[in-house]
Amino acid sequence: MAMDASSGDAPVKRRRASLGSANLAQVAQLAEVSEATVSRVLNRKYGVSPATRQAVEEALREVGYERPMNNELVLMLTPNLLNPIFAQQADKIESELSPHGLKSIICQVYPGTPQERDYVEALIDSGVAAIVFLSASNTLLKADHRVVQLIASRGIPFVSINGGFPETVAPVVSTDDWRAAEIAVAHLHDLGHRRIGMLAGPVDNIPADRRVDGFIQAMERRGIDDPEQFVARKHFNFEGGQQAASALLALGVTGLVASSDEMALGAYRAVARAGLSVPHDVSVIGYDDSALLDFTAPPLTTVRQQTERIAENVGRIVTSLIAQRPVGTDEILIDPELHLRGSTAIPPVQG
């Protein structure tokens, strides 16, 4: 677990939400519950049914009560801080929350495992006001999602990035992965490539599945037959990219669309080991974008996730949820951008 610099070295003290006794009685009357139950909801204690909690929350909104945000904690769950995209996203979200007096705790977890739930359970009584699933178990369709049941039982609001939990209705902010695939395919097709392959992430990973769908649709719109044969699904890392690229190069592809920058750099290795070069023989497009890509050989063209726009939306949603202001639950899709560098070119002349 890593706490960002804004939280300082002092221990975090839990601060309970306060409500005057007169208003407490008014809320209890409106919700048709006891004042003790209202208190439990205010302090997010166990032992309150979802229906009762909802009734109390609605009564709190009716009397105009907003939970204060000073010294509150926002827990961010992410799978990997070594990947620049997750570290960058977490930093930008923290910058959006800090002006509101909110402090971030960033936890690196193995999504969909008991570890994710353990982090939440260990910190939930430390004044956690909201939780951000930063591409954690919310991206996995068949993961253990009991962590959401725990959060719901305590009435803690949450928002997900790049895919939501199918069993819950909660705000989601995602990069438009269908659009990302379209942008990449369009660029390679405009250069003259027709045998284009995709280095895709694992099955039942929401962003990976969306990018595959977008790739297939983009290829079919351009009259490419049987595009599924040009999809190789592996892990999002360097080794996965190398394996997927090797399989696709054997099919004679001249352009590769990767589902992460790490996979794209793995494709560089596969191209070199095949006795070919980027971009003279094979063009490669990554996904995410990092300033470090300017220093790869050649610099990697990539589809950029607009992390700052994602952070702006997440910050707005989190502060609204904590203050009990209504927010929409339709997924917000942020358009990606193509960042041209030096890894794409016209395809080689076929002899």
Rank of each mutant, 00 (worst) to 15 (best):
S283C: 07
I151S: 10
A345W: 06
A274F: 08
G101C: 03
G241H: 04
A17Y: 09
N71C: 05
T37W: 03
H280D: 15
G241I: 06
D144N: 15
D209C: 10
G351Q: 15
L24M: 15
G197P: 12
A245Q: 02
Q88P: 05
F133N: 04
G47I: 08
T319Q: 15
P298C: 08
L199M: 14
A291V: 10
V27Y: 00
R14P: 13
V147Y: 11
P11C: 02
L77Y: 11
T113S: 15
G64K: 10
G266F: 03
A17R: 10
V128I: 15
D213T: 15
A274S: 12
P171I: 00
A59N: 02
R40D: 09
V33K: 00
V12E: 14
G20N: 06
I106E: 00
R67G: 12
P336R: 08
N23R: 09
A170M: 13
T344Y: 09
L276Q: 03
Q350D: 09
E58N: 04
L73N: 02
T302G: 14
T37I: 10
F230E: 03
V147D: 13
A311L: 10
N237A: 14
A31G: 01
L300R: 04
T168A: 00
V74T: 10
V159M: 00
A152Q: 04
A59V: 01
I105T: 01
D335V: 01
P326H: 03
D190P: 02
A5F: 08
I317S: 04
L249M: 11
P299W: 07
P111T: 07
I224M: 12
T37Y: 01
G351K: 15
E96Y: 01
G155N: 04
A31D: 01
Q88H: 14
G328S: 11
F238Y: 07
V120N: 12
N43T: 14
G286C: 14
S259R: 06
L300N: 06
V284Y: 03
Q324H: 14
I346K: 04
K45T: 06
T344V: 15
S98W: 09
F230N: 10
C107F: 06
R154P: 05
R304I: 00
Q26G: 02
V253D: 06
F133G: 08
N162I: 02
L60A: 08
V282G: 12
D144Y: 09
A36G: 13
A129V: 03
D190V: 04
I310T: 08
D125L: 05
S137T: 07
Y110P: 01
S39G: 15
V284D: 05
L140N: 12
G252P: 06
V284T: 00
G223A: 06
N43E: 09
L333A: 13
G223V: 03
F238E: 01
F86V: 13
V147A: 04
V169R: 09
R40M: 10
P298Y: 14
Q217A: 12
R195N: 11
R195E: 13
N313C: 11
H187R: 05
Q88G: 14
S277Q: 13
S259C: 14
R16Y: 15
E262F: 08
A274C: 03
I224C: 07
N162E: 01
